[in-house]
Design a protein around this nucleic acid. Structure first.
Length: 591
RNA sequence: GGCCCCGUAGCUCAGCGGAUAGAGCAGCAGCCUUCUAAGCUGUUGGUCGCAGGUUCAAUUCCUGCCGGGGUCGCCA
C-alpha cells in the first residue's frame, strides 16, 4: 500500500482523460510521470511533474496543461487542495480522512507494510564477502558483508527471490601458501621450534589451531612425506577450518549465506566446468587467440609477448581483452570466475549482484562483459564496489601493520562495539565513498550517534506503551491498544496536529524508500530514512514536553490518546521492520 | 599513462533531471516539578571543483580539464 503509487495511478487516469480529449494526443506516454513528496512541505503533500513532462507532446505549455489536470484532480474525493506552482508542478494536499485511512491500513498490515512485489518474483543472486579462505575477515570484508546482506534483505522485501552466495576461492596459489603456512604450525604443534614465519607465508596465529588439529589427526606421519603428498591434505584441513572461522565471523554479524560455491568444484569430480564455459563463449565467438600490449605502470621483468587465449571483453566495453589461460596452460582466475558466473546464469539468475572490495574496481568491466556476453545481454550484473573503511580511535587512524599483532579483525570490532553499531554504520553511507569508522563515536549514547538515535526512537515507542499500560489501569485508554491488537484500529480522526500529520506522511514514504533502495541496490537510503523518521518522532515527542496537550498520553483526552497510540505503534512498526531489513536490533529500552 | 570512485556549509555527509540545494557536528540563542533532556527548538553559514554541451528544466546526464583516493600484470 503505497500512497504515491496510488496517486500516480490517479494522475495517469487524469492525463488519459484530459490529454486525448482536449489536446488530441491519443496515447500520451506517461512513463516519466511521477508523484513524489515535494522537497518543501510548504508545497503540499504530493507533487507531480505530469504537466511538465507531457506539455511538449500535447503541444501546449506546462502551466496550461497543469490547469486542466488540476481541474480533474480537484474532483478527487480524497483531494483537499490542488495548486499549480513553479514551472508547472501540480501540488496536492489530501484530506485528513485519507491519511487516517492510510494509517489504519498501515496498522492492519503491520510488519508487511512497505513490502511490495515490484520484483515480481525475479531471481536475484547476491554474491558478497567471497574473501579468500586464508584467514579471519577484516573490517573491509565486514563492510561488503553488511552491504550485501542488507541489499539481499531489501530485495527479498520487495518481491525478489534472493539467493545469498559466497564464492570460496579454494583453488589457486593462495591456498597453497595457506597450506605451507599451516604446515609450519603443524611442525610447531609437534614440538619443533619454528622461529619467525618466513616472508611470503601467513604469519597469523589463527593458524596455530590448524597445526594442532593436523597434529592431533595425523600425528607425525606427514613429516615423512614430500610436499606434493602432504600439501593437499593440509590444504583441505586449513581451508575447512578457515571457512569455519569466516562463518563464525559472519555469524557474529548475523549473516548467513545460502550457498557457498567452491571454485575448486568447477574442475573437480571429473568435470571441467571452466572448459564448458569457455566452449559456450567460443560458440558465441567471444574467444580468440591474440597478443596483448605490455602492462602499463611499473615495468615488469617477467612479462613476455606471446599468443594467448583471450576473452573478447572489449566487445562489451572493457579496455583490453582478457587472458583465459596462463602460460603453463592452466586457467586464469578470471576463467574460473567466468565459469562461476556462467553457472549462476544456468541456474536461472538473470540479475546478479557482486559486492566487491575497493581493490577490485579494475575487475568490474571484464566481469560485466562476461555476463553480458554469456547471456547475449539477457542477464545483468551490477557490481557494487565498496570503498575502504578507515578505523579511527579517538579521531586517530588505527595503524594496521602487516605483521600479526596489531591487525584489527572484523571480529575484534564486533566484539568491542557490538553488532548493531557495526551493521548500521556500515550501511549509513553510500558504498561508493570511503567510510570512517570511529570506535568511540559508534558506541556513544547520544544523538550524535546515528545507530543510537534510531534505536532510541524505537525504545521510546515502547516506553509510550509501558506508560499506557498504567493509564489503562486508570481506565482512560483502550486496553486493546496497549495489548497492540491493532486488528481493531481506533478512530484516528483526533490526529490533526501538524507534527502528527507530518509523521503520518513520513510513514507513507517508507514503501517508496524500500522500493527505490532495492531497485538502485543502495541500502544506505533505508538507513537515512530511518534516521529521518526517528528525528520526526523525537521531535513530536518533545513537542509534548512543551505543550502537554500534545503528549501521546493525555489523561484529559482518551480519544486522542487512543489515536496517538495508534500513530506511535505505526512508527514502532516501521522503525522495527526497517531496522530488521538492515539486520539491526530494535530494542524495547536502552541500557 | 589507462581505468574506477570521490570533490556540495568551517567539519562529516545526504540529495543524483525539477520549484528558494538539505541534515548532523561545530558556533550563537533557548527548552527539564515532564511519556527516558540518552531528547528538542530557533539561528549563522553554500559561485553544489572549473569550463563547455544536451534539456522546457542540470548539483543531478554528456565531454574536457583541475584536485584527492584506489587500481593496473598469466596474482587471487
Amino acid at each position: 500500500m503505497n500512497v504515491f503509487e496510488v496517486f500516480t495511478g490517479r494522475v495517469v487516469a487524469a492525463v488519459q482523460k484530459v490529454v486525448p480529449a482536449e489536446f488530441g494526443v491519443a496515447a500520451p506516454d506517461v512513463s516519466r510521470v511521477v508523484v513524489e513528496p515535494p522537497r518543501d512541505a510548504a508545497h503540499g503533500e504530493l507533487s507531480t511533474n505530469a504537466a511538465m513532462v507531457l506539455a511538449k507532446a500535447a503541444g501546449t505549455n506546462p502551466r496550461a496543461l497543469a490547469n486542466r489536470l488540476a481541474a480533474v484532480l480537484g474532483d478527487d474525493p480524497d483531494v483537499a487542495k490542488v495548486e499549480i506552482a513553479g514551472p508547472g508542478f501540480i501540488n496536492l494536499t489530501l484530506k485528513p480522512a485519507y491519511w487516517h485511512g492510510f494509517l489504519a491500513n498501515l496498522l492492519r498490515l503491520g510488519t508487511d507494510y512497505g513490502r511490495s512485489q515490484v520484483g515480481r518474483g525475479a531471481k536475484v543472486n547476491v554474491e558478497y564477502v567471497s574473501a579468500n579462505p586464508t584467514g579471519p575477515l577484516h573490517v573491509g570484508h565486514g563492510r561488503g558483508a553488511v552491504v550485501g546482506d542488507a541489499m539481499a534483505s531489501l530485495l527479498a522485501a520487495t518481491g525478489h527471490e534472493v539467493t545469498r552466495e559466497y564464492y570460496v576461492n579454494d583453488a589457486g596459489g593462495q591456498v597453497d601458501v595457506l597450506a605451507r603456512s599451516a604446515f609450519l604450525r603443524y611442525r610447531e604443534a609437534l614440538g619443533e621450534t619454528i622461529g619467525a614465519i618466513p616472508a611470503g607465508l601467513y604469519p597469523g596465529d589463527y593458524l596455530v589451531p590448524v597445526g594442532e588439529a593436523l597434529a592431533r589427526v595425523h600425528g607425525p606421519t606427514l613429516l615423512g612425506l614430500g610436499e606434493a603428498e602432504w600439501l593437499p591434505v593440509v590444504r583441505q584441513t586449513a581451508i575447512d577450518m578457515m571457512m569455519d572461522l569466516i562463518r563464525e565471523d559472519l555469524a557474529a554479524l548475523n549473516i548467513r549465506h545460502d550457498v557457498f560455491f567452491s571454485e575448486k568444484s568447477l574442475t573437480s569430480g571429473g568435470t571441467d566446468r571452466i572448459a564448458e564455459a569457455i566452449a559456450a563463449f567460443r560458440a558465441r565467438d567471444l574467444v580468440h587467440v591474440g597478443r596483448l600490449p605490455p602492462p602499463k605502470g611499473e615495468p615488469s621483468e617477467d612479462w613476455e609477448d606471446r599468443e594467448q587465449t583471450l576473452f573478447r571483453s572489449t566487445a562489451f566495453g572493457d579496455d583490453s581483452d582478457r587472458a583465459l589461460l596462463k602460460s603453463d596452460g592452466s586457467y586464469t582466475y578470471f576463467a574460473g570466475d567466468i565459469a562461476y558466473h556462467y553457472d549462476k546464469y544456468l541456474r536461472g539468475f538473470r540479475s546478479m549482484i557482486d559486492v566487491l572490495g575497493a581493490d577490485h574496481g579494475g575487475y568490474v568491466k571484464r566481469l560485466r562483459a562476461a555476463v553480458t556476453g554469456m547471456s547475449g545481454g539477457e542477464a545483468t550484473l551490477d557490481v557494487k564496489v565498496c570503498q575502504l573503511v578507515r578505523l579511527l580511535r579517538n579521531g586517530e587512524p588505527v595503524k594496521m601493520g602487516k605483521r600479526a599483532g596489531n591487525f584489527v579483525t572484523l571480529r575484534d570490532v564486533v566484539d568491542e562495539v557490538g553488532v548493531d553499531p557495526v551493521r548500521f554504520m556500515m550501511v549509513y553511507r553510500t558504498s561508493d565513498a570511503p567510510l570512517d569508522f570511529d570506535f568511540a563515536r559508534v558506541t556513544e549514547q547520544s544523538k550524535d550517534n546515528a545507530v543510537f538515535y534510531v534505536q532510541y526512537a524505537h525504545a521510546r515507542t515502547a516506553s509510550v506503551f509501558r506508560q499506557a499500560k498504567a493509564a489503562v489501569l486508570e481506565g482512560f485508554v483502550s486496553a486493546y491498544l496497549v495489548e497492540r491488537e491493532m486488528a481493531v484500529v481506533p478512530d484516528l480522526s483526533p490526529l490533526a496536529d501538524p507534527g502528527e500529520m507530518a509523521l503520518v506522511r513520513k510513514l507513507a514514504d517508507f514503501p517508496r524508500i524500500l522500493e527505490s533502495a532495492a531497485l538502485a541496490h543502495e541500502p544506505h537510503r533505508l538507513a537515512f530514512y530511518l534516521h529521518e523518521l526517528a528525528s520526526d518522532f523525537h521531535s513530536q515527542w518533545n513537542r509534548g514536553t512543551e505543550t502537554p496537550q500534545l503528549r501521546f498520553i493525555n489523561q484529559a483526552d482518551p480519544l486522542s490518546t487512543d489515536a496517538r497510540l495508534a500513530l506511535v505503534d505505526a512508527v514502532r512498526v516501521v522503525l522495527s521492520s526497517g531496522l530488521a531489513i538492515l539486520g539491526v536490533h530494535a530494542p524495547e529500552e536502552m541500557r
